[in-house]
Computed example of a mutant assay.
Amino acid sequence: MTTRTKKYAALLRGINVGGSRKVPMADLRTVLEELGHSGVRTYLQSGNAVFETAERDPAALARELERAIETRFGFRVACLVADGDYLRAVADACPFPAAELQGKQLHATFLSEQPAGDRFAHIDRDAFLPEEFRVGDKVLYLYAPEGLGRSKLAEALARPAVTKGIDATTRNWNTVVKLVELTAG
């Protein structure tokens, strides 16, 4: 019997930003290989890795990677793992005209679990226009015409009332598209 393998992307939250929580990409590749994964590649320095392994629950893969990173580097890093099918579905379901926007204007915040619908009730969407967000399948789509760094809506979405109990990490649309490409097939 042959074990089915699948391609996954690991998205690490908050590493290599501002000189703290350093996780060199070469070391991240080594950690993933030591966990038995193959075809390991990293993308950018912000904690994106692609690997192939026996088909498994993405949440279990994320917990395994979090433990390995904490053992190796001495600090916890929230990790989200998604397979190529899920990433493709996220891209296909984008409620904004991605092809018409610059990558810095559109972002996907990947979530460790589906948030309850009332979690966003306190956000006055009209107060942030032209910025907008939509909730998808364990993902928030954020349209920020001036980019994430200037986004007041991104700040509101990152507040504890929204994020409590959920690990989240954001990627610009260019990175989402690249991760879809790297995990295809």
Rank of each mutant, 00 (worst) to 15 (best):
Thr42Pro: 01
Leu61Trp: 04
Gly74Glu: 02
Arg29Glu: 10
Tyr43Trp: 14
Glu52Tyr: 04
Leu44Cys: 01
Glu55Gly: 03
Ala59Ile: 14
Val40Gly: 02
Gly47Pro: 08
Ala54Pro: 02
Asp27Ile: 04
Ala60Ser: 14
Glu66Gln: 13
Asp27Asn: 10
Gly47Met: 10
Leu44Glu: 03
Arg72Asn: 00
Arg29Lys: 14
Val50Trp: 02
Leu44Pro: 01
Arg41Gly: 04
Asp57Glu: 12
Leu28Lys: 04
Arg63Glu: 11
Thr30Gln: 14
Leu61Met: 05
Phe73Met: 01
Thr53Gln: 07
Gln45Asn: 11
Leu32Phe: 00
Asp57Met: 05
Leu35Gln: 12
Arg63Pro: 15
Arg67Thr: 13
Tyr43Arg: 04
Leu65Gln: 05
Gln45Tyr: 12
Arg56Val: 07
Gly36Thr: 01
Arg72Glu: 06
Glu55Cys: 13
Ser46Val: 08
Thr42Ser: 00
Val31Pro: 07
Ala68Met: 08
Thr42His: 00
Glu33His: 02
Ser38Ala: 13
Val50Gln: 00
Thr53Asn: 01
Ala62Asn: 04
Glu64His: 10
Ser38Asp: 13
Val40Leu: 07
Phe51Leu: 09
Ala68Ile: 13
Phe73Asn: 05
Glu64Ile: 13
Leu65Arg: 03
Glu66Arg: 08
Val31Asn: 01
Leu32Tyr: 02
Leu44Asp: 01
Leu65Pro: 13
Leu44Trp: 02
Phe73Gln: 05
Gly47Asp: 00
Leu35Tyr: 15
Phe73Thr: 04
Glu70Thr: 13
Leu28His: 03
Glu34Lys: 14
Asn48Ile: 11
Leu32Met: 09
Arg63Tyr: 15
Ala49Val: 14
Val40Ile: 07
Arg41Cys: 09
Gly47Thr: 03
Leu35Arg: 10
Ala49His: 10
Phe73Cys: 07
Thr53Glu: 04
His37Gly: 00
Gln45Asp: 10
Gly74Thr: 11
Thr53Gly: 11
Val31Ile: 15
Leu61Tyr: 02
Ala49Asn: 12
Leu35Glu: 11
His37Met: 11
Glu66Ser: 12
Arg29Gln: 13
Arg41Glu: 14
Thr30Phe: 06
Glu70Trp: 05
Arg63Trp: 15
Glu55Thr: 15
Thr71Asn: 08
Ala60Asn: 12
Thr71Val: 10
Ser46Trp: 06
Pro58Phe: 08
Phe73Ile: 09
Glu52Gln: 13
Thr71His: 13
Leu61His: 00
Pro58Glu: 04
Leu28Phe: 08
Leu35Lys: 09
Glu52His: 04
Leu32Lys: 01
Arg63Ala: 08
Pro58Gly: 00
Glu64Lys: 12
Ala54Val: 03
Pro58Asn: 00
Arg67Tyr: 04
Leu61Cys: 09
